[in-house]
Design a protein around this nucleic acid. Structure first.
Lengths: 189, 189
DNA sequence: AGATGATGAACAATATAACGCACAATTTGA
DNA sequence: TCAAATTGTGCGTTATATTGTTCATCATCT
């Protein structure tokens, strides 16, 4: 079950109990069956936009208030809880430590490259920038035909709106951290 | 198809075209199949919260920006486009002319009561207020045992957090307009 | 204690969201 | 001018959202 559904689960339950409503009351108020409401509160369902909308308007609250999550002051992210995105047959493993947040407009990844690992990346949107800290081993990147080798302890920053490729040309494991900044390309209206 | 889905339909299409993305591009970006994206843009589908979430994060925009609708400066609401809520076997017809909006916190209804029509209403939340303008005929309301008769041209306001019942005790059609104000009962956290 | 009513969870049935594939229309480009 | 690629739509299939109903648990009377 997805992250977003957990959020609405706890929010909805909190709001319902705050207002001393039973599932049946809420059902009459929103026009959504109480079984569905129960499943949503338990995080067992992936509701439809229409359903979420009916719940929000039935409760006379904004849809946004169902999907906001009040983040704790501090929180620990365990690597073991993060499912990595793998490329190059498992030799290239991306751990999204701090996923993209449209307000902060950046994300933070840890990446492991086995010896010989290679990964190619399509150009991102204009002015997207990647910041790489090499933690262990040696990191090689090719941008627009130019090749850069970066050693442990060093760092590199580059615009990612061109084709680029990552390599670990050494014979031992390479670990890097990457901060990607995405400018807000959507121009409203 | 519901209102909210039309909104995301036009918003999504606008954003996609603004960024010069094909359905296939957007599909790769979001992990949602292009057939689904096409259906959403055409308003033919009622997407899942998970899907909307994937689209928003894939585009690096807030989920809110997909569900906001920039209302036109002015707009005409046709009675014929509104499907009434009927009670008392069709003798009591409610037309939601301006549906509830959580920002404005009120809604505006037109109600028609055939001769002899009666409708009972559960108590609303505390401090909810109803404002009635009698346009035609005669309107009778019973609140907490007290009975009020209101004639055309007159008006009545009352707290709706008690049991109350509406009647048309006359022998001709009665038309009223009702403005219901809902205080914000949800206390965050 | 036992009956009654209310509440949330479990189950079965149906409607439909979501996907992969194929097709038609349009654009590209040589 | 004709292939080749790209784009959006349509269709069949699968997974699952949503509903109505049943069931277990608990509180409240008499």
């Amino acid at each position: 079950m997805d992250d977003i559904n957990r959020i609405v689960a706890v929010n909805l339950k909190k709001i319902r109990e705050k207002n001393k409503l039973s599932l049946e009351n809420l059902s009459e108020l929103t026009g959504v069956s109480k079984s569905m409401l129960g499943q949503i509160e338990r995080g067992e369902s992936n509701p439809t936009l229409q359903t979420i909308w009916k719940i929000a308007t039935g409760l006379k609250i904004s849809l946004t208030s169902l999907i906001v999550s009040t983040k704790p002051e501090a929180e620990i992210i365990n690597k073991s809880n993060i499912s990595p995105i793998v490329e190059d047959e498992g030799r290239f493993r991306i751990y999204p430590m701090f996923p993209f947040d449209y307000e902060k407009r950046f994300e933070v990844l840890n990446i492991e490259l086995d010896p010989g690992a290679a990964s190619y990346s399509e150009p991102h949107d204009e002015n997207t920038e990647e910041h790489v800290l090499v933690q262990e081993g040696e990191f090689t990147i090719k941008i627009n035909g130019d090749t850069y080798r970066v050693k442990a302890g060093d760092a590199i920053r580059y615009r990612a709106d061109k084709d680029h490729a990552y390599y670990n040309l050494s014979d031992k494991l390479t670990k890097i951290s990457m901060v990607i900044y995405y400018p807000n390309i959507i121009i409203k209206e």
